[in-house]
Amino acid sequence: MAIVANLWNRIIEWFEDRQSRTKLVRSFNSSAKEAFVQGIVPVMMEASIVKGDPKYRHRFSKVFEGSGFRIKAYAGRQLTKNDIVNIGATILSNEILVRRLVVLGWDTLQIHCDVGNYGCQWQLHDYIMIGQNGE
């Protein structure tokens, strides 16, 4: 019975995680779109779930569902490295977001633009501080 219960919990957890992941990506995309339309930011950003870097895996990583959180910046030009690093640093400085990304199965943060071939990626595990807040 314990095996069934465990299996059942896994199934429920899978659905819950999937819902939370989709919700997070949608929220980001909707905010990015709104900011671009209102002229607050000069670049339209779009988040998506992609294959992560296998070197960055951790115990929460979702290998088969995509463990990479990719942000594509539609700028119509090649963004400077400084711009890309700035976007990444802003995301990584938000501890709550990073922790949430990690527990929802992401292990890699990738940022690149629609023009050009280069982008940046970070190992999310390096930026979490689980258990330090509220203890």
């Binding site: 905010s31 709104e34 900011a35 930011v41 000069p42 700035n86 802003t90 709550i96």
Partner: peptide
């Protein structure tokens, strides 16, 4: 998470 603030902070 305040995504609007996050997106705004990325560039400004």
């Amino acid at each position: 998470i305040d995504f609007s603030n996050l997106v705004n902070s990325s560039f400004n």
